[in-house]
């Protein structure tokens, strides 16, 4: 992958990725084999939402499309080697998530935001511990979700709601929000967390499943 940056010991990062992949792959098992027709149908159904999902992580649609295409290429080439125990959909979302995280990591190293190999590993490890589950997909795809979120946001104090909307829907950075609202960065983050946690509790009730395996 493209995350290798000259100044770090490449070995350790590669090892880490392999460790994560192995651990993750061993949890999946069931054989795959598609005909070209199956593949086309799968692509037509899942390409748009997967691009949307990758776009949410990368905030860049053309990068997201490129990345999702590569996930499908790998799915075809490795179809007999992939073991899946969840749904194929959840598997593809997971692959897109992992690829997007790797991409972010690449961008981080390019921007020289990282100073130590150790922190690089920590960053990847935290992100890669995330697993896409069925109830997440159910909520993500539900038409009611958006209305529910809007309703829940109404219940938040005005400031808290405003900060959340600026951050999540207008894509403002923390610094921009704190400048705009004349608040300290810490206050902004505390309010953001409050909104996020409130939504988490609310969304948990939507799903008939035990959401996010909490």
């Amino acid at each position: 992958m493209g995350l290798l940056c000259k100044k770090y010991t490449k070995r350790s990062i590669i090892d880490l990725i392999f460790r994560i992949m192995e651990k993750w792959e061993s949890n999946y098992s069931a054989s795959l084999f598609f005909t070209e027709k199956d593949f086309d149908i799968l692509f037509k159904n899942l390409y748009p939402p997967l691009c949307g999902f990758a776009g949410r992580i990368l905030s860049n649609l053309s990068e997201a499309e490129e990345l999702v295409q590569d996930v499908f290429v790998n799915l075809w080439l490795n179809q007999s080697r992939i073991h899946i125990q969840t749904s194929l959909k959840a598997y593809l979302y997971q692959m897109v998530h992992n690829a997007a995280i790797n991409r972010l990591e690449h961008l981080r190293t390019q921007k020289n935001q990282v100073n130590k190999v150790a922190t690089e590993q920590e960053w990847l490890e935290i992100h890669m511990s995330y697993s896409v589950n069925e109830s997440f997909l159910e909520i993500l795809e539900s038409k009611e979700t958006e209305a529910r979120i809007l309703k829940e946001l109404e219940q938040l104090p005005d400031k808290c709601r405003e900060i959340f909307q600026l951050s999540r829907y207008r894509n403002l950075t923390n610094a921009e929000i704190s400048k705009k609202l004349n608040l300290s960065p810490v206050t902004v983050r505390v309010q953001l967390f409050r909104a996020l946690n409130h939504l988490r509790k609310a969304l948990q009730n939507i799903s008939s499943f035990f959401l996010f395996s909490l």
């Binding site: 949307g52 992580i57 905030s59």
Partner: peptide
């Protein structure tokens, strides 16, 4: 943490496709 990350991802601006 991962539950919060799910909600965070869900509430990111979805890009039109």
């Amino acid at each position: 943490f991962n539950a919060l990350k799910s909600v965070w991802l869900m509430n990111s601006k979805a890009l039109p496709y």
